[in-house]
Computed example of a mutant assay.
Amino acid sequence: MRILLVEDDVLLGQSMVTALSRQGYTVDWLERGSGVVTALKTEQFTAVILDLMLPDIGGFEVLKSIRRAGYAVPIMILTARDEIQDRVRGLDGGADDYLVKPFALEELLARLRVMIRRLSGATDSQVEVGDLVLSLDRQLVSCQGQELKLTNNEFKILASLMNSAGRVMSKDQLQQSLHGWEEGSSDNAIEVHIHNLRKKVPGNVIKNIRGVGYIIEK
Rank of each mutant, 00 (worst) to 15 (best):
L99A: 04
E182G: 13
V17T: 11
G121Q: 02
E83H: 13
I3W: 08
Q23F: 13
I194Y: 10
K41A: 10
D96Y: 03
D137M: 09
Q23E: 15
K218C: 15
D96V: 00
A39R: 14
V114G: 05
E7F: 02
I77Y: 06
K171C: 09
V88A: 00
H195T: 11
R118K: 15
L108C: 01
D86C: 02
A104H: 08
S65F: 13
V114W: 12
I190F: 08
A95C: 00
L5Q: 04
Q144R: 12
Q139F: 10
D28R: 08
G35H: 07
Q139K: 12
G24M: 03
S21T: 09
Q23H: 14
V127H: 02
S185W: 08
T38M: 14
L148R: 00
E106T: 12
R113I: 02
E106L: 07
L105Q: 01
F60I: 04
L112H: 01
Q146Y: 06
K218I: 13
V212C: 12
Q176N: 15
N208D: 15
L12I: 08
Q14P: 01
M115S: 15
E154N: 03
A110V: 10
L108I: 01
S185D: 10
S185L: 10
D51I: 04
G166I: 03
R113V: 03
G121P: 02
E183C: 09
D187F: 12
L99C: 06
R210D: 09
L119H: 13
L108V: 01
S170D: 04
Q85K: 15
A189I: 14
D124T: 04
V36L: 07
K207E: 13
E83I: 03
E183M: 12
A39Y: 15
R22Q: 12
